[in-house]
Amino acid sequence: MMMIEMPAWQLIGVGVTVLGGFAGLVKLLLLQTERRLDQRFAVMDERFNAVAKDGERLRNLELSFERLRADMPLHYVRREDYVRNQTVLEAKLDALALKLENVQLKGIKQ
């Protein structure tokens, strides 16, 4: 069996070196992980900004639609309303025509 003899200061130096190397690797892994997380969060921020813009555009569209709905009765006549108004006008014209016809008939009889 072979024995390796080292003085205590060398053993402590090797231990500190190994621990330092291990700590360096851990720090390197943490830095890479943090960098990767920063990249992912940057992508997520872009997506959230895009969603926020879409939300703002949707809100503007909804406001435009509500304005259109508010203005529509001023610029648009429903078919039923038009037919009802037309019927009333035609009935009045028919009554006027009947009165004129009656006046003409009375004028002929006299």
Rank of each mutant, 00 (worst) to 15 (best):
T87P: 00
L68K: 02
R84H: 12
M3S: 15
L89G: 02
G13H: 09
E62M: 09
R35G: 03
V14S: 02
L37Y: 07
M6V: 09
L98M: 14
A8I: 08
K109V: 12
L29P: 00
R40G: 08
L11D: 09
F65K: 01
L96E: 09
K109W: 03
L100E: 07
D71F: 05
V16D: 01
L37P: 00
K99D: 04
F22M: 12
T87Q: 08
I12F: 03
A97G: 01
M2T: 15
Y76S: 11
A70T: 15
L68Q: 11
V26P: 03
R35P: 00
R47I: 05
K106T: 05
E34R: 02
G107T: 14
P73T: 06
L28F: 05
R36A: 08
E90K: 13
R78M: 13
V51G: 13
R35T: 09
A97I: 07
V83H: 01
L19G: 00
F41P: 01
E56K: 15
L100P: 00
L58P: 00
E66P: 03
V77H: 10
Y82Q: 13
E80T: 01
V77N: 03
G107I: 12
V43S: 14
L58I: 01
H75Y: 07
L25E: 07
F41T: 06
V83K: 03
Q110V: 15
Q104C: 14
E66Q: 13
Q39Y: 04
L31V: 02
L37D: 04
R67V: 09
L25S: 13
V77C: 06
L11W: 01
